[in-house]
């Protein structure tokens, strides 16, 4: 599948500290790529590097198949819409006047303003000065300006920040509709796992500047399949026996949990037989559902909001 964004060993260092380290990110065409990570993980810095707002310390970025360099800057920016950090706006101007400035800079006809305002449901507020807007309205205006000119790629940094629950739902539905309606590829960052779960087709999990997981949302869900917790009369010996027989098993000494990473009947049957053959008594066999949050916790060692 063609990648709209691809980075290779992308790194950014501030002083001696790496904010982004060896990031290999691939955003497939037409996808909604959820860029997930706790606050301060390096999401915004990565997005800023993609847009040329920050220079990478090392590594390469390719957008639309061309390297992000000075000579390709205009071509890339012409086809990219973005909403980075917080929604930008000129408070002394009206919403419509703000969009007119973007139209002028992007070389887009002003007739495009009306449709994008309708898309973000802001037609009625367009003649109000933006300084009187609520944060949610500013966020929607920011999205409207990112949508101007029908960009092929949309970069949205925490777009639901500051929105009320209804606004979040509305924004989510809007983002989900973009690839089908306009053929856009969307890279959306969030620190909320549930949000990415509801929006994205692909996920990249970043923590302390490093990409810990990348793949389809379905792949991530596959990690959340059932596991079996086993209690025996001698868990340590049981672990050695099962491991020796190449059965997918893990033993956490601290919690004393013996986990069978398989729910296949044949595997369970074989394990029980092996334990009996080695005179290890089986006390309990318990089903465990590993949630997405557990996976995230395992990957990042950090709790996320749900």
């Amino acid at each position: 599948m063609e990648n709209i964004v691809a980075t290779e060993s992308l790194s950014k260092k501030y002083g001696k500290k790496y904010v982004v380290k060896n990031l290999n990110m691939n955003v497939p065409k037409g996808s909604i790529y959820g860029f997930l990570g706790p606050n301060g993980a390096g999401k915004s810095t990565t997005m800023k590097m993609l847009l040329g707002l920050a220079r990478q310390t090392q590594g390469d970025i390719r957008i639309f198949g061309v390297p992000v360099r000075e000579e390709n800057r205009m071509k890339i920016l012409k086809n990219t819409g973005s909403l980075i950090e917080s929604p930008a706006h000129y408070g002394h101007l009206t919403g419509r006047e703000n969009l007119e400035i973007i139209c002028t800079l992007k070389g887009v006809p002003k007739t495009e303003i009306e449709p994008v305002l309708r898309t973000v449901r802001m037609e009625k507020q367009q003649d109000k000065k933006v300084k009187n807007y609520s944060l949610g309205m500013k966020q929607r205006l920011g999205l409207a300006s990112a949508l101007l000119g029908h960009p092929r790629l949309l970069l949205l940094d925490e777009p639901t920040n500051g929105l009320d629950p209804a606004g979040i739902q509305e924004m989510r539905e809007l983002i989900c509709s973009l690839p089908d309606r306009f053929g856009m590829t969307v890279l959306v960052s969030s620190h909320l796992l549930s949000e990415i779960d509801q929006m994205a087709t692909h996920v990249g999990i970043i923590h302390q500047g490093e990409l810990l997981f990348e793949g389809g949302l379905a792949d991530l869900h596959r990690h959340s399949r059932l596991r079996l917790k086993v209690r025996t009369t001698d868990d340590e010996r049981a672990f050695r026996v099962l491991k020796g027989a190449d059965i997918p098993v893990r033993y956490d000494r601290e919690s004393g949990r013996l986990l069978l990473d398989s729910e296949e009947d044949a595997c369970v049957l074989r394990s029980v037989r092996l334990l009996a053959e080695h005179d290890i008594g089986l006390l309990r066999l318990e089903e465990l559902q590993v949630s997405l949050e557990d996976i995230f916790l395992k990957l990042t060692g950090k709790k996320v909001s749900l």
Partner: peptide, 18 residues
């Protein structure tokens, strides 16, 4: 000041102009 306020630098520098 218009650009220093309200994150407008981001918009200014991502506009497709030299």
């Amino acid at each position: 000041r218009l650009e220093h306020l309200n994150h407008n630098w981001n918009v200014l520098m991502t506009a497709p102009v030299p």
